[in-house]
């Protein structure tokens, strides 16, 4: 290696070091610490009873019906909100991509939900559905006495609605970037080849956007799986809407049981890794196919 390359390399590492160290310290160390805590019986209310208990916290969590119920709730919210967002986001992306006029207005307006503080959005929707103050019950076709946030189905629906409202713009923007990567010429070629608008969308646009769709789905699925703010504000986990993040928070911060709480934290971390691996595999395979490497 030449002296020049060596010094370039040294400079590069010096420039990257602060960011890398910060990321390692603030994520790597605490997650390691969480693993260590999760192996102990450690409740801040009884700090003197702290002892090493091996995997028994995990056994407790994994055999509790609360954990599995929360996993189920989280899955419902994740799947429902991400799939609605995908369809809705695609529609908005198509409007932004193809609209002849008003593109700027659409772009500006979809960025509003993106910019809004999640807690604010959660309050807004909560008040909208509140039987005492909400305008929703004033709308035609909606029962005057409905109180969706007092029962499970309604609460889940409002949570999903809030999540969808807030994050569809992000989805739409990622999909829009994907749409922009499909050359106009291919659409024209398909037109000449005899494909109608629907066929063009399903046979040309969608397959070519697959990597972009997978990236968008990956980010949104991970995000939705960590859902915390909306649930905390709207139900605080009541009415059978507790998610894994809320559970972790309750055990760690409210009940200050650091041992069990850390076990929950580590399990969530593992679940996220699982989801990410799943998507990254799919993504790798699909981009490889696209480039023709697999053929």
């Amino acid at each position: 290696m030449s002296e020049r390359r060596r010094s370039e390399r040294r400079l590069a590492w010096m420039l990257c070091a602060p960011a890398v160290i910060a990321m390692l310290i603030v994520t790597g160390y605490p997650i390691g610490y969480a693993v260590w805590l999760s192996l102990q019986d450690y409740d801040l209310r009884f700090p003197d009873d702290r002892e090493f208990v091996g995997l028994s916290n995990y056994a407790d969590v994994l055999t509790s019906s609360i954990w599995w119920g929360d996993v189920w709730n989280t899955t419902i919210i994740t799947v429902a909100s991400v799939s609605i967002e995908l369809v809705l986001g695609m529609a908005i992306a198509l409007i932004m991509h193809r609209a002849i006029f008003g593109r700027g207005a659409v772009r500006a307006s979809v960025l509003i939900p993106y910019g809004i503080v999640t807690v604010v959005a959660a309050f807004g929707w909560r008040y909208a559905f509140d039987p005492a103050s909400g305008f929703v019950q004033n709308l035609p076709l909606i029962s005057d006495t409905a109180a969706p946030l007092t029962e499970r189905g309604g609460s889940l629906a409002v949570i999903v609605l809030t999540e969808v409202w807030k994050t569809t713009p992000f989805m739409a923007l990622l999909l829009l970037a994907g749409l922009a990567l499909v050359p106009d010429e291919l659409h024209e070629a398909a037109k000449v080849d005899g494909a109608g608008p629907v066929q063009r969308f399903f046979r040309i646009t969608l397959p070519l956007m697959k990597p972009a769709i997978l990236v968008a789905l990956l980010f949104r699925t991970l995000d939705a799986f960590r859902v915390f703010d909306t649930v905390y504000i709207q139900t605080a986990g009541a009415n059978g809407t507790e998610t894994v993040s809320i559970l972790g928070y309750q055990v760690l911060i409210n009940r200050v049981n650091l041992g069990v709480g850390s076990a929950v934290s580590v399990l969530i971390f593992l679940a996220v890794i699982l989801i990410a691996t799943f998507f990254v595999r799919g993504l790798g395979a699909s981009t490889a196919r696209q480039r023709g490497e697999a053929a």
Partner: peptide, 28 residues
């Protein structure tokens, strides 16, 4: 276009990158 029974060759070829040569040629 699809009802005119014409075929077009584009400047940048406009080949569908996700299809094989066979699929590209047989698409219409």
């Amino acid at each position: 276009p699809k009802d005119r029974d014409i075929a077009m060759v584009f400047q940048n070829y406009a080949l569908y990158p996700h299809m094989t040569v066979r699929e590209n040629m047989g698409f219409a």
